[in-house]
Write a protein that binds this DNA or RNA. Structure first.
Length: 759
RNA sequence: GCGCCCUUAGCUCAAUGGUAGAGCGUUCCCUUCACACGGGAAAGGCCGAAAGUUCGAUCCUUUCAGGGCGCACCA
């Protein structure tokens, strides 16, 4: 007798939604509700998807791998917490909202800060709802009761608390330094958000004036009106001029005052062996200028235009042409050569980065401070040591090298952004003239200080809005209009989600450090490194013990998925067509840690067929056996052949368990796939048909029991990979069981069943 | 420039110090009472090139070629 539900082919559309609901109602996603055998905590905090739209295959891959870990650990008796959330994604969300407003014919400047913020929140909410729905569809066994958002109230308190503490320690400071200015987005961005693109450029060689002895080579003539020095090699061909100062009365109508200085970094072999220094518009030059006390002369403004003099208002490229023309006309031009150069581009907006000096907030990564144990360290050291000591293991290991390399090149992190959507910096200013000696222009409508931002206005850093100015007592204070880099709040993610800054939080005690962080290798620096920094600093412990990095999901030809190529495979479409189980399998098998996954619809379809196969295996087995087998082990009466089958299964259990423990999910998945199809179905079941057609009752009984055990273990181990169909089959097999033994046996959900024993 | 990865079946990719696998595709046979979303059979790979280590290498080492990626203040 076949159970009724097995008579029909497997219908994932009907099943998946029903099963997910059943899991949610069971409460088992929440570790607090797990049965008492679940003691040892196992926690993963989900990398929060950006609330900028919908989930893509990369997110799907992330969800699957994390769910496999959570489900298998839950079955192995761990107290599993998988905490979900979303990220407000500051710049990314803001630019999306701006585009939407643009379509509605609304300009950003027509809205107040609050109005804009409301629109952004509304968009974020809609996007959040879509994402949550998608996460459910994937079958992710996350604890919704603990869901978090990087910009909600609790996280905001964490951010402000963190900011204040770091400020008081001197690790957050406000400084006038060269930043990566994005003229298109009108904001600073961090070094990591800058992409270097190879482009064809020209190297121009010229002299400032006929009296000036040294020719200079440059790719950006427009910046040369901001030159205040020339660097040459201390022992090079120009050394006789070191220390001399030259006044150039007319350089394209500008007056230059150039000092020749020596610097080891000058490459004699490149260009003319002399570098024209533009401290205000080049990171390198800034440092050399600082060492040599050269003045800093800003000539380009935030709109990438010349800010003064005869060329005022000209765009950089226009100014470049005019300067080259002027040089040629005045016989100062020597030559121009084609060359490949790297141009800096803002990752989000695509704008060409203009290095500019600006008054911004930074995190000092090289500044020494005293740890709780009295030892001295820096944030950079904390980040390095966490991995070096082995406290954090990165999988695959090769990314550890990449991580160190990044840390070694790390400079102070600019955290202030001139955008509206995000955590507003918890800093207030008193603008009364008694508290500052500079006049401030302030636009109350936009809550923006127009200019000049000044170091002379003293910041008042506070978690909550201060009652009044601590110096003059005046009530009216103005909050810094800038918001924080989105990675500042996500850096706190592993502990801000667990109750920090409340140090008595039970969740924080139980689940931090988290067990595993699983994410794409593309945000190793952006995010993983920042979490290590924050957790080490604020809690003195690692945020996670293991980092598992997955690759990018690419199309069938290995190309990056993108809208312009039109090769995007949408997880939700695939779930609708082939089911979540099939989609999950396709993202695990053939996808080892750290390497890119190439995905095709055919691959997903293949795993849908596998689901069908599994369904029919269960049909066959349940047709011939009374029960699926239980934990009590093998009866002594098993036939020889059946003992072999059981032994084979035990090997599989060992292999799969080991593969999972070593984070080789693709191996585990493939082993199961291969066993179920090509061993259980093709060999064992085929051979069993003859057994059941025969008349040896003992043999039949032995085989039926064996098949029941094989099915049982297959379902158990496949569950983390294909949770829906396995749970459904489990419930069917259980029902048959309890139907015969009476109704007191409440069927147990597969989700909390015990992982098969290894012998 | 520094560093990392990849090169395996027609395509996209796994695995492994000792007979090489998956998905899709190709050829032939079979509607047999789990499944045609199936079964059976088959074709197809000197595992990028060369040298070395080893009883033995696709796997380890070195060099080379091609491809990809990360980082970087070549003015």
């Amino acid at each position: 007798m076949l159970p009724e539900r097995l008579e029909k082919p497997y219908d994932f559309r009907e099943t998946e939604e029903r099963i997910y609901k059943k899991w949610e109602e069971s409460g088992y996603f929440n570790p607090d509700n797990l049965p008492p055998r679940h003691k040892e905590p196992f926690s993963i905090i989900m990398p929060p998807p950006n609330v900028t739209g919908i989930l893509h295959m990369g997110h799907a891959a992330m969800l699957v791998i994390e769910d496999i870990m959570i489900r298998s650990e839950r079955m192995r008796g761990k107290k599993t917490l998988w905490l979900p959330g979303t990220d407000h994604a500051a710049i990314a969300t803001q630019s999306k909202v701006e585009k939407i407003l643009e379509k509605e014919g609304i300009r950003k400047r027509d809205l107040t800060r609050d109005e804009f913020f409301k629109r952004a929140e509304q968009f974020a909410q809609e996007s959040h709802d879509t994402i949550v729905n998608q996460v459910r569809k994937m079958g992710a066994s996350v604890d919704w009761s603990r869901e978090a958002f990087t910009l909600d109230k609790k996280r905001s308190l964490a951010v402000r608390t963190a900011f204040k503490r770091m400020y008081e320690e001197g690790l957050i400071y406000r400084g006038n330094r060269i930043v990566n200015w994005d003229p298109k987005g009108q904001t600073t961005i961090s070094d990591d958000e800058v992409e270097h693109k190879e482009t064809k450029g020209k190297l121009y060689t010229f002299k400032y004036s006929h009296d000036f002895p040294i020719p200079i080579a440059t790719t950006r003539p427009e910046t040369k009106i901001g030159d205040t020095g020339v660097a040459v090699h201390p022992n090079g061909k120009w050394k006789e001029y070191i220390g001399k100062q030259f006044m150039i009365k007319d350089f394209v109508g500008y007056e230059l005052n150039i000092k020749i200085i020596a610097d080891e970094s000058v490459d004699e072999g490149f260009g003319t062996g002399a570098v024209g220094l533009t401290p205000a518009h080049s990171q390198t030059d800034w440092h050399i200028a600082e060492k040599n006390n050269l003045p800093i002369k800003q000539v380009i403004n935030g709109h990438a235009k010349i800010n003064s003099g005869p060329l005022e208002g000209k765009k950089t490229l226009e100014a470049r042409e005019e300067i080259v023309e002027w040089l040629k006309k005045n016989n100062l031009f020597e030559k121009e050569e084609e060359m490949v150069q790297n141009i800096s581009v803002a990752e989000r907006s695509g704008g060409t980065i203009e290095p500019l000096p600006k008054l911004q907030w930074f995190i000092a990564v090289n500044k020494e401070f005293t740890k709780e144990d009295g030892g001295k360290t820096t944030l950079k050291k904390l980040m390095r040591e966490a991995v070096e000591s082995g406290a954090i293991k990165i999988i695959p290991e090769r990314f550890e090298k990449i991580y160190y390399h990044w840390i070694d090149n790390l400079r102070d992190w600019c955290i202030s952004r001139q955008i509206l959507y995000g955590h507003q910096i918890p800093v207030w200013y008193c603008l009364l003239s008694t508290c500052t000696d500079k006049e401030i222009m302030y636009n109350p409508q936009t809550n923006r200080m127009v200019v000049p931002r000044s170091e002379k206005i003293k910041p008042i850093v506070s978690i909550e809005k201060p009652e009044g100015c601590p110096r003059c007592g005046v009530k009216e204070l103005h909050q810094d209009p800038d918001t924080l880099d989105t990675w500042f709040s996500s850096g706190l993610w592993t502990f801000s989600t667990l109750g920090w800054p409340d140090k008595n939080s039970l969740d924080l005690k139980n689940y931090h450090p988290t067990s595993v962080l699983e994410t794409g290798y593309d945000i190793l620096f952006f995010w993983v490194a920042r979490m290590i920094l924050m957790s080490e600093y604020f809690l003195g412990e690692v945020p996670f013990k293991t980092v598992y990095l997955h690759g990018l999901v690419r199309d069938a030809k290995g190309q990056k998925m993108s809208k312009s190529i039109g090769n995007i495979v949408d997880p939700i479409d695939m779930i609708a067509k082939y089911g979540a189980d099939a989609t999950r399998m396709s993202l695990v098998i053939g996808a080892p840690a750290g390497s890119d996954i190439s995905l095709s619809e055919d691959k997903i379809k293949g795993y849908k067929h596998f689901g069908n196969k599994l369904w029919n295996i269960a049909r066959f087995i349940l047709l011939h056996t009374e029960e699926m087998g239980d934990e009590s082990g093998q009866p002594a009466t098993l036939a020889l052949k059946d003992k072999e089958y059981i032994a084979e299964m035990e090997n599989l259990i060992r292999d799969v368990t080991e593969a999972l423990a070593s984070y080789r999910f693709h191996i585990a998945g493939e082993a199961l796939y291969h066993y179920v199809w090509h061993t259980l179905a093709d060999k064992i079941i085929e051979e069993s048909k003859a057994v059941f057609a025969g008349d040896d009752e003992l043999l039949k009984k032995s085989r039926a029991q064996t098949l029941g055990t094989l099915l049982r273990n297959s379902l158990l181990m496949l569950h983390p990979f294909m949770p829906f169909i396995t749970e459904e089959l489990w419930s069917i097999a259980q029902k048959k069981d309890s139907g015969e033994t009476g109704e007191t046996n409440k069927p147990k959900l597969l989700i909390i069943e015990s992982w098969p024993h290894q012998s």
